[in-house]
């Protein structure tokens, strides 16, 4: 009994056989090296972080701590005259505060369908933004769908085709959207087309990569079966690969549609039109009621689109977390 309790109190590792103590020694050594590496990593990391923060503060036109009080002032002062004003701004109803200035002029931007029936300006812009996103998602997904099969090792081998298609996709994915939008704006003048093409290009790259990864993970047995039946390459892709990958493709496409709604808002703010531009103008001119009206509209539409696409995706491929795709944006 004495020996057992003695052993229990002892930290395991003392009084071991030669082999075990060797292992223990190695383990301790490993632990030491790991700790040293961890310490170095942490120090380097903290240094980079500190330098980054310092740099960011220096580079900013207003310093963080100087400007922090103004943030709260800005929030305090940035309130509409009455909560109803937000509602009026949203639906283009005349304001009782109207003084001829742009700030309270909600009605002049109405989009009339008939003599009396109109679409409120912000809603109209929101519809444009969402349509930009939808059109680019559809076209981008269609092109990515065609391209992805030529980027999959299991369908075209590891040759030149795959290399070229993959590089094209990578460049399309990484190419700054605003440059495409800016170049097209210079050629086609301001309008939604520049935004559509810019987002489409990015969509092709991003979806293409996700698509070919799905294709590469697909089961090749059906393909072999059809090959043995004398089916051509296109027929094998159509019947052996597409049925397997389609649910995942659609799911990724829906996720992309969500991201593209946000992207088209931002591109809009840079000059692509739509709700983004209207928002930039409203907040830049201190039009509180209009700003809040747009924020509420955007919030509602984004939540609605997210929920709808999440529901659709669940129906398509079951309860699988697909947020991985978000990071691929």
């Amino acid at each position: 009994m004495a020996t057992i309790s003695e052993q229990n109190n002892r930290v395991p590792g003392g009084g071991l056989g030669p082999a075990a103590s060797m292992v223990m020694q190695h383990y301790r050594q490993q632990l030491r090296t790991r700790r040293v590496y961890t310490a170095i990593a942490i120090v380097v990391f903290l240094f980079v972080l500190g330098a980054s923060l310092n740099f960011a503060n220096d580079a900013n036109s207003g310093k963080f701590f100087e400007r922090l009080p103004y943030l709260f002032d800005f929030i305090k002062n940035f309130v509409p005259d009455s909560p109803m004003e937000i509602f009026r701004a949203m639906f283009d109803l005349p304001s009782p505060y109207a003084d001829g200035s742009l700030k309270y002029n909600y009605t002049s931007d109405r989009v009339y369908i008939t003599e009396t029936l109109y679409i409120p300006h912000f809603l109209y812009q929101l519809v444009i933004t969402i349509n930009i996103a939808l059109v680019s998602t559809i076209i981008g997904a269609a092109i990515a769908f065609v391209l992805c099969f030529f980027a999959s090792t299991n369908l075209v081998g590891a040759g030149a085709t795959r290399f070229v298609v993959r590089r094209i996709m990578e460049v399309m994915r990484a190419f700054p959207e605003i440059v495409i939008a800016g170049l097209l704006t210079a050629i086609l003048s301001i309008g939604p087309i520049a935004a559509i093409i810019a987002i489409t290009v990015h969509t092709i790259g991003a979806l293409g990569k996700l698509f070919f990864e799905v294709v590469e993970n697909s089961d090749m047995k059906p393909d072999e079966g059809l090959r043995a039946a004398g089916a051509s390459w296109v027929e094998r892709v159509r019947f052996a690969i597409v049925p397997q990958v389609l649910p995942n493709f659609v799911s990724y496409m829906l996720l992309r549609a969500e991201i593209n709604v946000r992207a088209s808002t931002i591109i809009g703010a840079v000059g692509g039109g739509g709700i983004g531009e209207v928002f930039r103008l409203a907040i830049g001119r201190d039009h509180a009621a209009k700003t809040y009206a747009i924020i509420i509209l955007l919030l509602i539409s984004i939540v609605a689109i997210d929920q709808f696409s999440a529901w659709l995706r669940r129906r398509l491929i079951g309860n699988q977390s697909f947020e991985f795709g978000r990071g691929e944006a």
């Binding site: 089961d219 047995k221 059906p222 072999e224 079966g225 059809l226 090959r227 043995a228 039946a229 004398g230 089916a231 051509s232 027929e235 019947f239 052996a240 049925p243 397997q244």
Partner: peptide, 28 residues
């Protein structure tokens, strides 16, 4: 390959398509 049909240990059908379509794929 059409004239020399082949069947496999793992069947190599297209699992997500219905049986009738799978059979008709023999006509491709």
């Amino acid at each position: 390959q059409r004239d020399c049909a082949m069947i496999f240990q793992q069947f190599n059908l297209v699992p997500r398509l219905d049986v009738l379509t799978n059979v008709m794929l023999g006509r491709l």
